[in-house]
Each structure stands twice: as structure tokens, then as C-alpha cells.
Simulated assay, not measured.
Amino acid sequence: MPTPLTLASWNVNSLKVRLPQVLDWLAETRTDAVVLQETKLVDEAFPVEALAAAGYEAIFTGQKTYNGVALLYRRETLRVANPERTTLNLPGLPDEQKRFVATELAPAAGGEAFVFCGGYIPNGMETGSWKFLYKLDWFAALERVTGEFLRTNPRLVLGGDFNIAPEDRDCWNPAEREGQILVSKPERAALARLMRTCGLSDAFRLFPQSPETYSWWDYRQAGFEKNRGLRIDLLLVSEALRARVKASTVDARPRANAQPSDHAPVTLALELD
């Protein structure tokens, strides 16, 4: 049986600042593919050469100061199977914000291809605001595009910073946050509808997990040190891949770095034929 692939998602909160940490993490973990969020770089400044020297190819779309996403894959283990299926931003959504990337990957040595998508879902700012409505609209577009991918390839992984804690157990203070942004009923309903309509499963919840495991901690008030966090970074897998997922975890170690991102990488191990 082939060695499982490691896929990941990580909101790096500025790739310019966090590039050394990303390179160190990739060298240590030898992750096969990762989707990044909040790269905050225009395309001309993207560190293509540094990543290539580390053995990774990059597909990316960015803008100055805000947003920006990328998909990195290790040349030794993966290749782009169908370049024409590479997608930047959500088709059909009139939106200049750089929040989505997807491509179809296959093992470099041969094997079945799968779609790997990365999204940076809008925060929403405050329930009921126009940014909140934009977030729900963005989810509807994501649901449509994910469905279109699945119609041509049922093997799909959708990772990203979803800016939603799916359940109360994904939040350190659910009673205090009830009804607020990131945990409100409309947001959770949008995520649940995406998963139900597209047949997606939360890879993390396919396995027993330690309680109070989060992927984001506020920089303020020693959020990480006190483990006052939220699990808002997810890897969702389609029904065709559900049984192929062999492990999923949150790697909190980079959050303890000096000048870290406020998010930690989330990972899964995927076994393909």
C-alpha cells in the first residue's frame, strides 16, 4: 500500500513575515500539499524561488495587505493532473478579494487524481452586518463550485480558514459567545448545508480527539497560553475519500513560535490507490 499523503491547511497571517516558519515546518513534516490563507502578498512578491528550492511548486493569487491564498505541493510526490481545472477565486462570484484556489493533483508516481481546494472564508465581522451577508453569499458560491468539482471528480478535499467553529465543543467559551460571529446559527447552518449538499465530512471528527483542541487563539490576553481558542480551520473530505483518511490533527507547535501566526496548521493523512 502506498505511503499516505499528508495534506494541510494553514492561515499564515502574512507569508512575508511567516515564510521562514513555513519553510521550517515543511522541511520538518514533509507535507505533500498545503493550502495557505492570508498570504497578504501581491503575486509579484510571492516567494516562488524559495519554495521551489524547498521542493514545492505553488499556485497562488494575492493582493496587498489583505487576503491571498496559495496551494503548495511537493514535486517529489505530487503533480498537477489537469492544469485546465486549476481555479483562482470563485467562478461566477463578482468579488475582487483573493480567497479561493483549487487544482486537481495526482501522485507523481501514478495513481488516482483528487481535487484539492483552499478557501479563506470571510470573517463576517458582526452578525447582521453587510459583511455577514457577504459571508453567507460566499458560502453559497462555495457550495455551488464544490458541487461542480464533484460532478467531474468525486475525490475532493476542501481545506481552509472557515471562520466558523462548527460546534460548541470547538469553542473554549460557547456560552459566552452564543449568537456571536464565528458561532452564530446562520453561519453554522451555512457550513452544515455545504457539507450535507456536497457530502463532505470534517476529517478531524472522523477520529477520537482530545477535548479542547483548537486551531486559532487570539494574540491578546495570552489566548494560546490559556488555550482560549476556536477550531475554525478545517479539512473537509468527500464521501469517496472518507474511508481513505487515516488520521487528522491540529499541529499546534508553530503557534508557540516567536512571532507566530494566530492559527495552527491542520492536517490529514490520505491513502490513495
Rank of each mutant, 00 (worst) to 15 (best):
Q221E: 15
A243T: 14
F204V: 02
L72T: 04
L191F: 10
R75K: 15
A175W: 06
R242K: 13
R155C: 08
S261M: 07
L36V: 06
N227E: 08
T3K: 14
D262L: 07
E49C: 03
V12I: 15
F207Y: 09
R18M: 09
L234S: 00
E104W: 08
V42R: 14
A8R: 00
D170F: 09
T31M: 08
A52C: 06
C117E: 09
V145M: 11
T86Y: 10
V69I: 07
N257M: 05
M125I: 13
W130Y: 11
A190T: 06
I232Y: 05
L105H: 01
E167Q: 14
V250M: 04
R74M: 12
G229A: 07
R85Q: 15
L72R: 03
V12C: 14
M1F: 10
A252C: 09
F224R: 15
E112I: 02
I232Q: 05
N67L: 02
A54W: 05
P122A: 03
L150N: 05
G124E: 01
G92H: 02
F204H: 06
P47E: 03
V101T: 09
R228S: 06
W25D: 03
V157S: 06
L191N: 03
T152E: 14
P122T: 01
Y56G: 01
N257K: 07
R228C: 12
